[in-house]
Design a protein around this nucleic acid. Structure first.
Lengths: 219, 219
DNA sequence: CGAGTTTGTACTTCACTTTTACAAAGAGTT
DNA sequence: AACTCTTTGTAAAAGTGAAGTACAAACTCG
């Protein structure tokens, strides 16, 4: 069965919300409550979940612990993923210090950098080692790395992505401001520059709308 | 006229692609070329642009400099936006060091942090000052800040957003792992945790598909 | 002037997403 | 056990965006 694209991000939101509810000491929830917290229609939540099974109990709702487990299976975070970051710059460092990711099953185990003088350094609070690019293939194997984060300039991003594919990486999180398209691997883009521009575009649209409605008012 | 949501992000992509073409020394382009570079249909690009005017020349294509200017008007980056970052942590520092944003019209002018001991420090290569939260209102006015970046833990994010709205901020870029919904302001979320989970979900889906097709092959 | 391009746009079709609506299943009460 | 209330799961309908088609209009170039 084909799963619509946006579902994956919503599932991740559900998982996070379930975690929040659990930490508030709650035991069960409903599609309605989740919908309120996430500004989504309850029916959409039920439909999204129905792609993967029946996790609720009619008349009661969803058992939070069970739902979390189910979502973790669906999202494939019932295991720890070993992650490497290519590019030992600011973004990479920020990621390495974000202990949230480790808690959620993503374990950053190595940095790689084109600049050989960075090799041997330790990055961030957890002191993650920087290796040379030439060591990538060996380290991916020996450390069991399955996910690569691209945190290099746009001009190098495609090249890095191809290298990652070549050494057997199956998933890439791309922070470089460029669209990479490769058949052999899943790529998820995090494009902050585009987000800034989309924001100012929407701010402009809102401003125009505001002025238009004032104009109408006075006419 | 109602503009479809996905259009804003595509416009930002066009703008970036136009910049790349210009830096390659090119003078004109066509919807076909843009389509090839961005993996989009030429008709969609023409359609997106047509929402905002007629920027091309029939028989020739688009003058790159003119198109860039037009896109900058549409995206509201024909001016410099003054930006503040709330939360002087790792993400904030990474943003402050990203000179790309400044080049594109987003000028980070101040940090704010709840922790008073951080006040007075200078962050990043450009030495941007950290102020106390109590100085927010005054600084937003005196520095002409219009955009706020939320780079604090999820638990504080909503509170910070409400403060930002109160002092007159019109646009928020939210890096905290939580969905904030406020009527009075445009909010754009950058949610790295969700991107990680969406990635492993897709990796799992691809794996299942692969196994399924192997199974079919052997039956 | 005529052939060849390429845009801008109207119209259609298609695919996907969201919403609506309701039967089915269970909980709680009397 | 009968009845009410709640909430799920899902089929069907409605809505939305994307893709494809088609073509007149505008421009270039020889």
């Amino acid at each position: 069965m084909k799963i619509p694209g946006p579902v994956s991000k919503r599932l991740a939101l559900y998982h996070r919300c379930v975690g929040t509810l659990l930490s508030e000491g709650r035991g069960i929830t409903s599609s309605q409550e989740l919908g309120e917290r996430l500004s989504l229609k309850p029916s959409q939540i039920r439909k999204d979940l129905s792609y993967f099974g029946e996790f609720g109990k009619r008349g009661t709702g969803y058992d939070l612990k069970g739902l979390r487990l189910s979502l973790e299976n669906v999202l494939r975070i019932n295991k720890t993923w070993n992650v490497c970051i290519v590019g030992a710059g600011n973004i990479g460092t920020a990621l390495a210090n974000h202990r949230e990711f480790f808690k959620e099953g993503y374990n950053i185990v190595a940095f790689f950098d084109r600049n050989p003088s960075k090799a041997g350094r330790k990055i961030g609070e957890r002191g993650i080692l920087v290796y040379q690019m030439s060591e990538l293939e060996e380290k991916v194997k020996s450390l069991g790395i399955e996910i690569g984060v691209i945190a290099v300039p746009a001009s190098e991003a495609r090249n890095v992505a191809e290298i990652l594919v070549k050494v057997g990486i199956k998933g890439i999180l791309n922070f470089a401001p460029t669209k990479i398209k490769l058949e052999e691997v899943e790529i998820e883009d995090v494009d902050i520059g585009i987000s800034f521009k989309a924001l100012t575009f929407k701010m402009g649209a809102r401003e125009i709308e505001r002025q238009r409605s004032i104009g109408k008012e006075n006419s």
